[in-house]
Design a protein around this nucleic acid. Sequence first.
DNA 1: TGTCGCGTCAGTCTTTTGGTTGATCTTAAT
DNA 2: ATTAAGATCAACCAAAAGACTGACGCGACA
Lengths: 206, 206
Amino acid sequence: MTITVLLVDDHPVVRSGLRAVLDAVDIVQVIGESATGEEAITLASQVLPDVVLCDLRLGEGIDGIQTTAALRALNPAPAVLILTTFDRDAEILGAIEAGAAGYLLKDVAPEAIIDGIQRAAAGDTVLAPELTARVIKGMRSPLPKLTDREVEVLRLLATGSTNKEIARFLFVTEATVKSHLVHIFRKLGVDSRSRAVHLAQDTGLI
Amino acid sequence: MTITVLLVDDHPVVRSGLRAVLDAVDIVQVIGESATGEEAITLASQVLPDVVLCDLRLGEGIDGIQTTAALRALNPAPAVLILTTFDRDAEILGAIEAGAAGYLLKDVAPEAIIDGIQRAAAGDTVLAPELTARVIKGMRSPLPKLTDREVEVLRLLATGSTNKEIARFLFVTEATVKSHLVHIFRKLGVDSRSRAVHLAQDTGLI
DNA sequence: TGTCGCGTCAGTCTTTTGGTTGATCTTAAT
DNA sequence: ATTAAGATCAACCAAAAGACTGACGCGACA
């Protein structure tokens, strides 16, 4: 019984590579490729793959997390295995929450990918060893949720804007910006704009 | 007359993909693969490829720029074509300075890669259209060179450290740190630590 | 009908940051 | 031998940032 797989990655080269790797074994069969999340969703609803191998970053359109969520809403829902280069906490957790069966880093050996696909098809959770510790840590100390406004301020902060500039940009007073900052700092457990930005970038919060 | 190519990328999947893409045409022949820069240099000196297709980021060891420089020092020197996912100014310029024949983004079509290899083998310069404007801009307004010490301070700055912390870490007084910062700000044309960090990250300076 | 979170704002106070000027010392280049 | 550049430090000043306290309106939710 072969496992049918749909490949989703915006890089043609990576798709070719995955296809080459997967075509080399009998147990999996690649039944489709797509370059975007949107395309993947429509294609998956037609070809009904057992497993979708999906990049986390998909260029222009929707990202891997949104794609995962949409794929998991299909019936029958494919197992979604996220493939990515980087290991940002927030994104990992986001994909798991969206229903992904697990995660693989792109720099793993071909065998690990095959193995991951089999485990995902069997309904197991697949986590790259390098990531497991991080995921667990992320579970233990989840980043406090920032409000929309706070994230907005944080983003501006990350561009190096001063409070005055942020205030002008958001059409509020500097006092309001400072107020948001106090809340952001408290939630993130830091005491300066620089550290807030560093932490936010480090954890994939922005 | 076929063009011999050596692939350098730390991701097995990408190497497989490139190989699949290149094996599909007669004009190029892949005569080797390596996962690290060090390996690529020794391998290239043995198999003497016409073109080396090299990722900019190579995991643990030396990066694509250092690899390029070493490869160009060989005799006969292969043309080095840099393949990368991201488009950071400083790195692009660094690779060009190190003697790379040009740049390709990983999300291009297979044909563009084939084409790039042929042009590189012919001695042409190959720049992904998306990057040309950036490279020219980088040429026009080159980032002023920071001293080693200044880069060191900038890196600490990027972690969100205060002047006091940086001073402690570098075993100097806060006055010295401030002095370095003034120089950094002047060279980068900014007026705050946050903006300096943002610019540095944006341009790939750190 | 409270009350709770969110976004908005004000005032005060301390700390940090950034600008300026100038100085010493070392090392490298000319 | 002189110069130039880099790293180090000092003292002063103004601007920005951050800590604290308190307040108001609004919508959601129970």
